[in-house]
C-alpha cells in the first residue's frame, strides 16, 4: 500500500499532519527511506520535513538553536561546538552528511550513533511540537532506550537548544571496528574550568551514560587516574541497560568504555592535540 505523503510548508502544517499519530516523519530520509525499502518500516502517512523551514543554526540569548532539519554539512559550516566536529566524522561521507540530520539521528535513537551522547553532554534541550502545543525535554530525559525516545507519535522534533558553554573545553572520541562500522563506543567530554569532568559515554549502554570524572592530576596516562575512570564508568554502566548488536556484544562495549572515556577527557584537556 502506498502511504499518504505530505510536505507541509511550516511547523503548523507538520503538527497538523502528525495529529492522527499514524504519520512517519521523514527528515533527511537516510534511515527511514532504506527502512521502508527493506520493509522494516511501514507507514500509513509520510510527513516530509524538507519544506517546513526547520533547517538552520541561530544564536539566541539562551544558547544556540539548531533546527531539526540542519544537516551534518550545515553543522560543519556553522561551527556548532562539538556537533560540527562530530559531523565531519560521520561515516557515510558527503552523501549522508548532505542529507542526514542531527535531529533525525536523535529521533532514531540508535545507541550505536554519535549524536545522542553529544546532545546529553551539551545539556541540550529538545523542543518538541504537536498540534496541542510545544514542550521542552532535556536530552538526558529524551533517550529512553535503544531506538526509543520521549517523543510521542504526534510530535515532531522542531529544534534543539544548546546552552552557552562559556569557556568549557570539549573532547570527543569515537571508536569503530573499521571505517565502515557503526560507532561502537563514543565519549564526549565537557570540561568546565574548576569542576569535575563531565563525560558522556555513548554506545556502551542503551542510552547515553553520564559519568563524573575527576581531573587527572598526573596526566591521563596515570594508572591511578585510569583506575578511577574505570571505576566511575563501570559504576555508571552498571545502572544502565546494556546494549549489544551484531558488531559487538555488551561485554566488549563495557570493557573498552573506560579507555574511550579517558581518551576523550585527554582530548578535552588538549593533552593530545
Amino acid at each position: 500500500m502506498t502511504p499518504r505523503y505530505s510536505a507541509p510548508r511550516d511547523l503548523v502544517g507538520v503538527t497538523a499532519a502528525l495529529a492522527d499519530g499514524d504519520g512517519v516523519v521523514v527528515g533527511g530520509g537516510t534511515m527511514v527511506v532504506p527502512d521502508m525499502t527493506h520493509g522494516r518500516t511501514r507507514a500509513a502517512a509520510l510527513v516530509d520535513l524538507s519544506r517546513a523551514g526547520l533547517a538552520g543554526v541561530t544564536a539566541g540569548a539562551d544558547g544556540v538553536v539548531v533546527g531539526a532539519m540542519t544537516t551534518y554539512t550545515d553543522l560543519v559550516e556553522a561551527g556548532v561546538p562539538l556537533l560540527s566536529s562530530v559531523a565531519t566524522g560521520i561515516t557515510g561521507g558527503p552523501q549522508i552528511r548532505n542529507r542526514g540530520t542531527a535531529g533525525g539521528s536523535a529521533c532514531y535513537a540508535n545507541p550505536a550513533s554519535d549524536v545522542p551522547a553529544c546532545l546529553v553532554a551539551l545539556d541540550a534541550r529538545m523542543r518538541l511540537a504537536s498540534a496541542g502545543g510545544k514542550r521542552e525535554v532535556p536530552a538526558a530525559g529524551f533517550f529512553l532506550g535503544g531506538f526509543r525516545t520521549a517523543r510521542r507519535p504526534d510530535e515532531v522534533l522542531a529544534e534543539v537548544v544548546l546552552p552557552q558553554l562559556g569557556n568549557a573545553l570539549l573532547g570527543y572520541v569515537k571508536f569503530k571496528l573499521a571505517e565502515s562500522s557503526w560507532p561502537i563506543v563514543t565519549a564526549a567530554t565537557v570540561a568546565v574550568p574548576g569542576t569535575a569532568l563531565r563525560v558522556v559515554v555513548g554506545g556502551a549502554a542503551a542510552v547515553p551514560v553520564v559519568v563524573a570524572v575527576d581531573r587527572p592530576s598526573a596526566g591521563s596516562g596515570d594508572p591511578a587516574w585510569r583506575d578511577h575512570v574505570r571505576e566511575a564508568v563501570h559504576t555508571a554502566l552498571d545502572a544502565a541497560e546494556p546494549w549489544s548488536d551484531v558488531l559487538a556484544p555488551a561485554a566488549y562495549r563495557r570493557r573498552i568504555a573506560p579507555a574511550i572515556a579517558a581518551r576523550s577527557a585527554a582530548h578535552a584537556l588538549e593533552e593530545d592535540r
Binding site: 571496528l177 573499521a178 571505517e179 565502515s180 562500522s181 557503526w182 548488536d245 551484531v246 558488531l247
Partner: peptide, 16 residues
C-alpha cells in the same frame, strides 16, 4: 544471517 548489509559486514575501506 545477521550481517546482511555493509554496515554490519565490514569491508575494508580506503582508510583501513
Amino acid at each position: 544471517l545477521l550481517s546482511d548489509r555493509f554496515k554490519t559486514y565490514l569491508l575494508p575501506r580506503a582508510g583501513d
